[in-house]
């Protein structure tokens, strides 16, 4: 996409909202690939976002938005939940409709974009919460992987249904007392990360918001590899102070603790994905 497309004619300029003008002036399009090192030099999302103070999800989204290999050709598919709030404030196309349908919508969209733009990479990125992937959308996520769809899926795992008021999700840790789990969760976190490897994902990474560089690299790799090799999956631990009842200032500390114990950094890729990655890194 060219920046021209979003640039209004002079006569209409004063009709636009300030945030749209800022998007044109400082958005991520066409000024070379951005990484998280460039954060602060461009607008990865429109400010201010409506997430709670200390929100791990919003941090995950900001870091993700700063890691897109080609934002001018990226489309994000989401699903209802907290992730919706910051993602609607990204500078990209964003669709968020029925809960859990994201990987199906992404499958249809990616295929249509291949039909319409066979010579271009149009990156379709699914970015949703843990309930969207592991519970209500598990069917659709897995089947998109089985089918080998060229989609990158990112789970922002805050281990809870945040937007609906702090209910247990399949990704909640065992024993946690939350709404709808009044006596504590009775089963462990759903092993989506492990399932991904055996369900067709050619690249998977498990990261936390406390390691921005690893997170950025994982999302970048996931998007690049999904273009030609196959489905990819990144699971991002993004703790929720509001519902897991810790001080907003402690989000990174909690994430770091997770990194040391049950949320250790892991990266897996197939040989084919490895070859592809080194080929494009060379060129």
């Amino acid at each position: 996409m060219s920046k021209k497309i979003i640039t209004p004619v002079k006569e209409f300029e004063d009709l636009l909202t300030p945030d749209y003008k800022e998007l044109i002036a400082d958005g991520p399009y066409n000024s070379g690939p951005k990484t998280i090192d460039d954060l602060g030099s461009f607008r990865e999302i429109i400010e201010p976002h409506p997430h709670c103070a200390g929100c791990g999800v919003s941090l995950g989204i900001r870091l993700g938005m700063a890691s897109l290999p080609s934002p001018e050709d990226t489309i994000i598919i989401g699903t209802p939940g907290c992730s919706y709030f910051a993602l609607t404030q990204s500078a990209l196309n964003y669709s968020c409709t029925a809960f859990g349908n994201q990987n199906s919508v992404a499958s249809g969209l990616k295929r249509m974009l291949k039909i319409r733009y066979p010579e271009k990479h149009k990156d379709v990125l699914v970015m949703v919460g843990d309930g969207g992937v592991a519970d209500i959308g598990l069917d659709y996520t897995l089947h998109s992987w089985f089918r080998g769809e060229n989609i990158a899926t990112v789970m922002l795992d805050n281990e809870v249904y945040g937007n609906t008021g702090g209910q247990e999700s399949g990704m909640t840790v065992e024993g946690a007392i939350l709404n709808m789990a009044p006596t504590g969760k009775k089963f462990p976190k759903i092993p989506v990360f492990e399932i991904a490897k055996t369900s067709g994902c050619v690249y998977t990474a498990k990261v936390t918001v406390a390691s921005p560089k690893k997170l950025g690299e994982a999302i970048r790799r996931a998007i690049l590899i999904a273009r030609e090799v196959g489905p990819t999956y990144v699971q991002v631990y993004s703790p929720c102070p509001t519902n897991l009842k810790f001080p907003p200032s402690q989000t990174l500390a909690i994430a770091k603790e997770g990194e040391k114990s049950y949320y250790k950094y892991e990266e897996y890729m197939t040989d084919e994905a490895k070859k592809y990655l080194s080929r494009i890194n060379e060129s």
């Binding site: 598919i77 199906s104 919508v105 992404a106 499958s107 249809g108 039909i115």
Partner: peptide, 24 residues
């Protein structure tokens, strides 16, 4: 140009929505 069997009708209608978003 493209055709596949999806996993259930909700998935079909969601993917059809996505394909239509893509402009075809």
């Amino acid at each position: 140009k493209d055709y596949y069997r999806a996993e259930n009708e909700f998935a079909v209608m969601a993917a059809i929505h996505g394909a239509s978003l893509g402009g075809g």
